[in-house]
Simulated assay, not measured.
Amino acid sequence: MRHLFVSAVAGLAALGTVALADTGPAQAQDAKQLRWATSSTGSSGHRALVALSTMLNDKFDGYDITVLPTPGAAASLRGFAAGQFDGYYGADVAFHEIEDDTGRYVGFKEQVDEPLVQSFWAYTLEVGLGVRADDAGEYKGWSDLSGKPVFTGPAPWDTRAALERAMKVAGVEHEYIELDKGLAGSALQEGTIDGFIVYTAGQRTPSPWVTEAMLATDVSVLNPNEEELKKLKDAGIAVVDVDKGAFDSDIGVDTAKLVPFFYGFHVGLNVPEDDVYRMLNTIKDNAAELAEADAAFSQIADNMVEMQVRGIEAAGTAALIHPGLARFLRENDAWNEEWNDRIAQ
């Protein structure tokens, strides 16, 4: 399987579909190459890493970062663990599945060559459901989608895993339909599906493909009802309010109630402590610029340090902490001494 994955990435490069971040004056001739994998083009993760790498290639000395799109964040994580990439796009939900040996990662721990550590938490993604606007009045909550065909996202994606977990807790027993994400809007309009995943990044901006789908057909966000919200709360699943203004089209409600989880662009111990520490300070110093390039980074522009703390708390014991991130938090008076035994060595 590893050989097949390498060949797929090589094929993308040969076709010119591997996006390379812009380079700047900070790129020296002796710069280290950093192959950073993320999700596919049209995703929040790809858009965000292009913005991040563009800034780092300009402001962060010593590295030449290349952005490598993969079929999804899970593919970037698996590729990193197999030594195929130098950085990856990883979520708290994936770390927990790996730790618990469940879901998409059963048996995965035995295949890891490079240890997975947390090094930079970028933003939350917030997931929910959309239905045809013409049918919105028929639904009182998520459970009304039980028995109906729903596209909750590409099968291996973390967004799907997070939404499916929340839907299960809320008591939704839907029929999962696999689609090319670019067909979600037309599939909803034609009745192939009755609902699909909608999600934002940083509570500010939808994923590009979600925006396209919602512009292609009239979509209303379907919020969980009060009973479902109580089930989610009792299960420890948070729900946040995202204003309708975050979307480029009418969503049928003033506020979308979405389930957040944490995403980061991580490197491993292949990048030394000093360099990760410098990188985090560079991101902190340029967070406002990043938020202008991609509104998903608004959370780190508001409070970069707090976002790292929240990400670590969400990951729990499921992933070790890069020593560069630990140093960054110590110097910003945000380190929790209870995390000392969780620093990667």
Rank of each mutant, 00 (worst) to 15 (best):
H174T: 09
T200L: 07
P323K: 12
W339G: 09
L325E: 04
Q299Y: 04
A161D: 13
L258D: 14
I343P: 10
G107W: 06
D254W: 09
L215M: 14
A37D: 05
D61C: 02
S39K: 02
G103P: 09
V259G: 04
S40K: 11
V127D: 11
E227D: 14
D333C: 03
S220N: 15
G153M: 07
M307A: 08
A318Q: 12
A314V: 04
D64N: 13
D248C: 00
A301L: 09
A73H: 12
A48Q: 11
R342N: 08
E114L: 14
K284S: 14
I98E: 03
D30Y: 09
A288C: 00
E331Q: 11
A295V: 05
Q33S: 12
K244P: 00
G182D: 14
G324H: 06
I343A: 11
A10Q: 10
W335N: 07
N223Y: 11
H3G: 00
R2E: 14
H322W: 08
G185R: 10
K284P: 00
F261C: 03
A161N: 07
W209Y: 14
G202M: 10
Q345N: 13
M55V: 06
Q33G: 02
W142M: 01
G62M: 03
S40A: 14
N336M: 06
F95L: 15
N303S: 13
G147Q: 13
D333Y: 04
A136V: 10
E97D: 15
A301D: 13
S44H: 10
Y63C: 03
P25L: 15
D274W: 01
Y176Q: 12
A161C: 02
V276S: 05
G252P: 09
D250V: 06
A246C: 15
Q118W: 08
A136D: 13
L183K: 05
S298F: 02
A8T: 07
A155Y: 12
Y263H: 08
P25H: 10
R104I: 02
Y105L: 12
I251S: 05
Y139Q: 06
L320G: 07
N57Q: 04
L15Q: 10
E331V: 03
Q84N: 09
Y176K: 07
